[in-house]
Design a protein around this nucleic acid. Structure first.
Lengths: 235, 235
DNA sequence: CGGCTCCTTGATCAAGGTCAAGACATGTGG
DNA sequence: CCACATGTCTTGACCTTGATCAAGGAGCCG
C-alpha cells in the first residue's frame, strides 16, 4: 500500500488542483502543503479510514474512485457518496473535530494525498478564500444529504433506483459504448438506494424490459434518460 | 408580522450570543451587525422562508421554535431539523450560494434577527474564528443528516419513532411535569420519522402500553428513557 | 474441473401505507 | 348556551410494497 516515492505528486503541477480549494492557496502555502503531504497508492478494497475513528487528516483524491459508507444493521452498508479525482475526503470530521461518520473504501485503484489535520486546519484558518471554499463544499454536501433524506422517506423503490442511475450517470459519465463508467456490484447499488440486493436486481430488469436501460454484466447503459428523469423526479 | 421597534435586540447584550458564532466577532463587527440586522416578531404558522427561494440572508433565533422541512409528494413535509434560541437558520443556502433547500415555519411564536447575506458573508470571510465556527456548524449538521440517511434506509418504524422521541427529549428538554417541552401534532411527528400519521399514532400507543411513555393530548412524557435508547440504538 | 463470488428468479410473508369511520376538542355565529 | 363546522386523534380493515428465504445459473480463477 505504501508507495510514496513512486507516486509522489507535486502540488504545484497537480492537475486536480483547479477543482479543489487548493487553488486558493498562495505559493508559500502550496510549498508547505507539498512538503507535508504524503501520496500513496491504494488498491481496490483498501480501507482508507474507518467510521468512528479520529482521522488525523484529510485525503485529496488524485486518481481512482472510493465509496464513503456508514455501517448499519448486520454490517449492511449505506453508501453516502462517492469520491473521485479532485474530491476531498475526511474533511468533515477534521473540521468539526468529531470522529469520522463514514468508512472510506477504494473501489478503483487510487492515488490519495494525505494532509495532516493540523496543517489542514491551519491553512483553512489562515486563508479566507480557502475556508470559504470549504464552507461552500460542506454546505453543498449538506444540501445533497438533506435531499436524500426526503427521497428515502417518501419515494418508492422504483423512483429511487431511477434516481441513483442518474446520480451514477452524472458522477461517472459514459464510456465509449455509452455505458456508465463505473463498476459496482448489485449489492453496492442496493446500498446506495437503501434496499435489498434482490429488489435492485428486479427493478433493473424491469427498467431493461421497459427499454430504459440495457445491462451487460455490471455495466449499465442508459437508453432513455428522459424516462428515468421522469420516473425519479416526481416532485 | 413586522414589529421591529418593539422587539429590537442589542447584539451587545443578546443572551443567545454566547451560543452562536457571533461571540467571535470583534466590537466593531458587532456594532455593524447591530446596525444592519432587523429583528422581527413571528407568530405560529408564519413562514420565514420558502424552499427553492434565494434567501437574501440569515436568521438568528432569539426566541421561539421553528421547523425546517422539505416538501415532497402531495405536499407531504419531511422535517429535517428544528431551530430554537441560539440557532442560526438559512446559512446553508447563503454560504453555498444556492437556493434554500428547506422551508422554515414557526411552531412557537418567535423573535428572529435577520442578517443580510452580504454582511454575513463579509463577516465570515474577514473573521477566521467566525468562519471556522460556521464550518464546524455545517459539518456537524452534515454528520447528523448522514446519520439520518442510514436510519431511514435501515431502521424499522419502531426504532425510528423511539429515536425521534429521544431527539425531541434532547432538543426541547422536559417541563415541570416531565413532559417533553414541545407541542407537535401527530402529523408533525410523522414528518420527522418519515412515515404516515396513523403509523406514528399506533407506535406511540404501543410504547404507552409497554410503559415506556405516557400521553396526554399532544404532550409526551418519557417514563423509561433507557428502554427507548435500547430500542433505537440497534447498532 | 471444482470452488469461489456474484447474479437472477420464484415463492412467501410481514411491515407499514392507505382508506374509511368515528371520537374528541375547539372555535364560531346565531 | 346550543348547533354546527373544523381540525386533530384514534382505531379497524385491507392491501401493496418490498424484505426475506431458497435455489439455481453464470462467470472467473487457481
Amino acid at each position: 500500500m505504501r508507495n510514496s516515492d513512486n507516486d509522489f505528486i507535486f502540488c504545484e503541477n497537480c492537475f486536480v488542483k483547479e477543482n479543489t480549494g487548493f487553488k486558493h492557496l498562495g505559493k508559500e502555502q502550496i510549498e508547505l502543503l507539498n512538503y507535508e503531504k504524503a501520496c500513496n497508492l491504494y488498491k481496490r478494497g483498501d480501507i482508507v479510514y474507518h467510521e468512528g475513528h479520529k482521522g488525523g487528516g484529510v485525503y485529496c483524491v488524485n486518481k481512482g474512485v472510493l465509496k464513503l459508507y456508514k455501517t448499519g444493521i448486520d454490517g449492511k452498508e449505506q453508501i453516502i457518496r462517492f469520491a473521485k479525482p479532485g474530491d476531498l475526503i475526511g474533511f468533515r470530521s477534521v473540521l468539526s473535530d468529531e470522529s469520522s461518520c463514514t468508512t472510506a473504501k477504494v473501489i478503483e485503484d487510487a492515488i490519495l494525498c494525505f494532509i495532516p489535520s493540523k496543517l489542514f486546519v491551519e491553512l483553512a484558518s489562515k486563508n479566507a478564500e480557502f475556508s470559504m471554499h470549504l464552507i461552500r463544499l460542506s454546505c453543498k454536501e449538506l444540501g445533497e444529504s438533506n435531499k436524500y433524506i426526503l427521497d428515502l422517506a417518501q419515494k418508492t423503490l422504483r423512483e429511487r433506483v431511477a434516481e441513483v442511475l442518474l446520480l451514477l450517470f452524472d458522477t461517472f459519465g459514459l464510456d465509449e459504448e455509452n455505458y456508465i463508467q463505473v463498476s459496482l456490484t448489485r449489492e453496492e447499488v442496493a446500498n446506495i438506494v437503501g434496499t435489498a440486493t434482490e429488489s435492485v436486481i428486479r427493478q433493473l430488469s424491469d427498467f431493461k424490459k421497459e427499454g430504459s436501460i440495457d445491462l451487460k454484466g455490471r455495466r449499465i447503459k442508459v437508453l432513455d434518460l428522459e424516462k428515468l428523469k421522469k420516473i425519479s423526479e416526481i416532485f
